[in-house]
Design a protein around this nucleic acid. Structure first.
Length: 105
DNA sequence: CGTATGACGAGCC
DNA sequence: AGGCTCGCCATAC
């Protein structure tokens, strides 16, 4: 059972569960870990992700609810976009096509 | 212990 | 459609 401070771990675990070629939104992840309104907190957790730990977590598969990539993400939005593209994620007008790559049940 | 901050989201104007 | 404000959650100070 989850410890009280397992929030970050839960976030990372949820992100790790995102298959290549697919993306999830902050709010969606928050919901998966049982905190429906914790989208911002999820962002906090990912931000706390150091470069070292970032190697184990596919943070680039996390985008905003509208499919757009936050400008303050990781090393830079360009990196994230490039990585997603490398996984076959399609972009439409700078936005990820969530209907096609969104995390679905 | 109260205030401020932030890789967000939904609602309103 | 686009932009602004308020609300939520978990930290930092």
């Amino acid at each position: 059972m989850p410890r009280a401070d397992a929030f970050f771990e839960n976030v990372y675990e949820a992100v790790r569960a995102i298959p290549p070629g697919r993306v999830a939104t902050y709010g969606q992840l928050a919901r998966l870990i049982g905190v429906p309104r914790g989208a911002r907190a999820v962002g906090w957790a990912l931000r706390a992700l150091g470069g070292r730990a970032a190697r184990k977590v596919p943070w680039h598969r996390v985008v905003a609810a509208d499919g757009r990539i936050p400008l303050r993400a990781g090393p830079g939005p360009g990196v994230q976009r490039r990585r997603l593209r490398a996984e076959g994620v399609r972009f439409t007008s700078g936005r990820v096509d969530l209907r096609r790559h969104g995390l679905r049940a």
